[in-house]
Amino acid sequence: MAAGTLYTYPENWRAFKAQIAAQYSGAALKVASSAPAFTFGQTNRTPAFLNNFPQGKVPAYQGDDGFCLFESNAIAHYLGNDVLRGATPQASAQVLQWVSFADSEIVPPASTWVFPTLGIMQFNKQATEQAKEDVKKVLGVLNQHLNTRTFLVGERVSLADITVACSMLWLYKQVLEPSFRQPYPNVTRWFVTCVNQPQFKTVLGEVKLCEKMAQFDA
Amino acid sequence: MAAGTLYTYPENWRAFKAQIAAQYSGAALKVASSAPAFTFGQTNRTPAFLNNFPQGKVPAYQGDDGFCLFESNAIAHYLGNDVLRGATPQASAQVLQWVSFADSEIVPPASTWVFPTLGIMQFNKQATEQAKEDVKKVLGVLNQHLNTRTFLVGERVSLADITVACSMLWLYKQVLEPSFRQPYPNVTRWFVTCVNQPQFKTVLGEVKLCEKMAQFDA
């Protein structure tokens, strides 16, 4: 059973993946996200940190046994268990398919759309409109897949659900207002099922779905 | 042992990952990349294809048993074997770490730098200069990691080497001229070791390292 420390800044959806995986596996995970254990922008620039994590990026994991990992998907995989990872080559390949899908198809348009509403990036009308169209395509693919399924792979929660749900957190909290998500009921049903699992709730707390699409925060 | 068909356009580095994995595992893989088996832009728009692969993207894999996968990393994982995937939770997490590293840290700057030299995209001086700096950082991380290692994870070739090497193919063929790659000898040694493995050579043929950095193809 893994035991170690996860370095991150607070409220990092990439770190949530690893924290939720640890809730399922029972791995003993300490989260270092605030002083004095960890200060983003300082601790991750120290020689000691860079020696273990040469890019200085977070989330970063250091096992009590000294085993170090960077890249959030790898950390969540390691802190999970065989059920979460997919117990057969077909299931583990399908888990990896949705993990890749989250990073390559969801994160770029979700960030383009949401970041300006959080005031952390300039608003660009054309880019936002394109991002909305890309998000609709993603929701369409997921809605079709979830038409006959409760979870993305097999009959139980896996790293596929944890990864895709965490990559959509900001979307559902900030901009997917009821009228926008109305054509994709299977996805909202699936998302609400996931975030209400006790292992998700312990990490995420109460996840309130967006009532009114946030506009960019000038 | 998996057996099936890989749909792609010719010379697709993302498809090479799956093809090389199959060389190691012995999976029976048919590649459909030209007419009449597959025409990119036509076959992947037919209802039959979209029914199995809703995004219509390639590479896409269909097993003789009907099992379908999209996302190139998932296909390579499925067509590989336990040695390539990493036989322990630590090794499989490290493999996933480098697979994620390739997609998040290598592919974006490599595409930005190389696409204009292939005529795929407009040249943008500022973006290209930034991409060169990002590639230097990537090469630095890899060079340090490979200082004491022959391969990225453990003592043998894994999906980490296959994925990272394939994501760097265009870089080494098009733009990493001797003076640019001189500060990173461990990476070039590792790359040449990989592409000279018989399983890589069967798929890639002879890989000639760039002699003169290609400029954009106006």
Binding site: P108, S111 | S34, F40, G41, P108, G119
Partner: peptide, 30 residues
């Protein structure tokens, strides 16, 4: 803390690159 996600490296241009790559290889295949 709200600012931290802004320091993440996101490939905002990805759909533009995917589109360009698709068009290029469709031309080649065509």
């Amino acid at each position: 803390a709200v600012n931290f996600p802004g320091q993440e490296k996101i490939w905002f241009e990805k759909s533009r690159y995917d589109e360009a790559e698709r068009r290029f290889f469709e031309r080649v295949a065509g």
